[in-house]
């Protein structure tokens, strides 16, 4: 197996693991959560998402 094929396999496994972990996290923390309106503009609700600027 070439180096490139090995790396492709590792990359595929990495993303597969990532998808599995996100799925498990979603199933594990599926408690009640107030869902925000689909669009923030005009919703009347303050933005509440996390952002690297410190929010």
């Amino acid at each position: 197996m070439t180096r490139e094929r090995t790396f492709r396999l590792i990359t595929a496994l990495f993303w597969l693991l990532f998808a599995v972990l996100v799925t498990l996290d979603t199933l594990d923390s599926s408690g009640h959560r107030a869902e925000p309106p689909p669009i923030a503009l005009g919703s009347g609700q303050a933005a509440s998402g996390g952002h690297c600027s410190g929010r």
């Binding site: 669009i39 923030a40 503009l41 996390g50 952002h51 690297c52």
Partner: peptide
């Protein structure tokens, strides 16, 4: 993105959250 999320496009908060989750 701003109109839908209410905040500007961001990257690293989410990546850090993945690290914290792990």
């Amino acid at each position: 993105h701003l109109v839908v999320a209410g905040q500007p496009w961001g990257i690293v908060y989410g990546i850090g959250l993945w690290g914290a989750k792990a």
